[in-house]
Amino acid sequence: MVGLLHTIEIAIGATCLGLLIGIGGAYGKLYGGPVVRDLLAVYTTAVRAVPELVLILLLYYAGTDLINQVLAALGYQRIDISGLAAGIAVLGFVQGAYSTEVIRGAILSIPQGQIEAARAYGMSPGLLLRRITLPAMLPFAIPGLANLWLIATKDTALLAVVGFYELTLATRQAAGVTKAYLTFYLAAGAIYLLVSLISNLIIGRIEARARRGMPSLKEAR
């Protein structure tokens, strides 16, 4: 159960971090200068082309090592980075690349007139982002982001490989101790499935709310 808690904590943390990176990245890609745009293109392409497992290993070791080296160079003591924080950071970094693309597409599908109208009213860019762009892009972004959330819950399983204690690793240890492999793995699978199905329900609600006032997809076709 501690494992499940860790899994969900990491999935939520990583998705939130990924969303922040994604919003920033999408803005950079749409409105940034040429250098920013190219760098972001490299980021999203590279992260999406390399297996998550390799990225997790690379960032997990390289990231903690780098932070410690920087701290040592600045004259501080080495710190132990908790697996939770490292896991959230790593998965968030990966999720950020995917959500950048999702959010970029969603912002592009907002009718341009809405943003222009907001500018004409003299809104500052921050207000524009908060009041217009984010709420207006939400209905377009939610299916993609929902997918990302499901991927995040499943990607947490990969952290078992670097030895972080979450649902899959807990299952493996429990199964190893009791020798009842099939039972434990089936139970863990059922838990993951339950998480997915429950999130599907919740996402359906959120989507219905975000799309309120818009024509339903079936009528639009």
Partner: peptide
């Protein structure tokens, strides 16, 4: 399809290898 898409691949892999493999 729902089951496959709702559970992590790593878990499916370990279920088959350790679970079935032990049976």
């Amino acid at each position: 399809c729902t089951i496959i898409r709702g559970t992590p691949l790593l878990l499916q892999l370990w279920l088959l290898y350790y679970g079935l493999g032990s049976l």
